Amino acid sequence: MKRGPIVFLISLIAVPLLLALLFKLIPPSTVGVKQNQWGGGIVEEDFPTGFRLGISGYHKWHYLPMRTHFLHFTSRSSSQNFRSDSVSKWSAPLEIRTTDNNVVTFELSVAYRIIPGEAYRIVMDGLKAHYPDRVKSVVMAVLRQELPKLTSEDLQLTDLRLERVNFTLPLLNERLKEFHCEAKSIMDGTAGSSLLSVTSGKLRFS
């Protein structure tokens, strides 16, 4: 029997198997974090989409989404059409008491992302499964600290609302550094513009 066909068949089976054992595919819109299971711990590097060297049994891979994450505070969160997933979290609107002692309901969205090059730090700090909840807690705390500094009359003025948003964003990012994330914008939860959508009683300021 000729050896050529046998060698070809063995190669046909062995080569894909060898590649599968030595390389891992990082999916699109995802960053990979490599962990050495036999010593060395987390590799201090983020691995982008593509085939990466990762020996099965020796390396363990963690995957984190690199897409923009969204925190939505809106009355639409009660709808079955809007469900939380790995990058979108839906919650009830924020109710905040202003400086003139009025309770105001804010419907808004906050866009944030994992800081490029710091995904491995999330895994290293044990935050892989918890960073979205930690970010949400910080966002709510900062917004409840800064937004009440506006009066009900201030909220009707677009320039003042934008000024407060622009002032709040760097304060928020300073807090989010702890979780290796950064906020990109605070947006109207319905229209998608960089404004706050505010409802007080039956009035809606936009």
Rank of each mutant, 00 (worst) to 15 (best):
1 M>T: 14
45 E>T: 12
6 I>R: 13
23 F>A: 05
20 A>H: 07
180 H>I: 01
8 F>R: 14
174 E>I: 04
185 S>A: 15
148 P>R: 12
153 E>R: 12
10 I>P: 03
80 Q>L: 11
75 S>Q: 13
180 H>M: 03
177 K>W: 11
152 S>N: 11
59 H>N: 13
185 S>T: 15
18 L>Y: 03
61 W>I: 00
85 D>M: 02
98 T>E: 04
157 L>V: 15
43 V>Y: 02
32 G>C: 10
193 S>A: 06
122 I>L: 10
66 M>C: 05
39 G>P: 05
116 P>G: 04
100 D>R: 02
100 D>T: 04
116 P>V: 02
110 V>T: 14
148 P>L: 00
5 P>K: 10
63 Y>C: 00
101 N>C: 08
31 V>C: 00
184 K>T: 15
194 S>V: 15
79 S>K: 10
116 P>H: 02
96 I>W: 05
98 T>L: 12
47 F>A: 07
16 P>E: 11
158 T>E: 15
65 P>D: 09
21 L>I: 09
166 N>M: 09
47 F>D: 03
16 P>M: 09
103 V>K: 12
46 D>F: 02
95 E>L: 13
152 S>I: 08
139 V>Q: 03
29 S>T: 07
50 G>D: 03
36 N>K: 04
62 H>E: 12
176 L>H: 07
110 V>C: 03
183 A>S: 04
46 D>C: 10
58 Y>S: 12
120 Y>T: 04
24 K>F: 15
58 Y>Q: 13
81 N>T: 12
16 P>Q: 07
77 S>D: 12
48 P>Q: 01
138 V>T: 14
60 K>A: 14
151 T>K: 10
106 F>A: 08
179 F>D: 10
144 R>T: 02
134 R>P: 07
137 S>C: 05
203 L>C: 07
114 I>E: 08
36 N>R: 11
135 V>L: 05
173 N>A: 02
134 R>G: 05
47 F>W: 13
168 T>M: 01
115 I>D: 04
2 K>W: 12
112 Y>P: 00
28 P>C: 07
135 V>T: 08
190 T>M: 06
191 A>D: 14
150 L>V: 06
82 F>N: 03
109 S>Y: 01
138 V>F: 05
20 A>L: 07
66 M>D: 10
195 L>V: 12
176 L>A: 06
112 Y>Q: 07
120 Y>Q: 13
185 S>G: 15
146 E>R: 13
170 P>A: 01
133 D>G: 08
33 V>Y: 00
42 I>H: 00
45 E>Y: 04
75 S>R: 11
39 G>I: 01
93 P>Q: 05
55 I>L: 15
197 S>C: 11
60 K>N: 14
148 P>M: 06
45 E>I: 05
124 M>W: 03
139 V>N: 03
66 M>V: 07
104 V>P: 10
18 L>H: 00
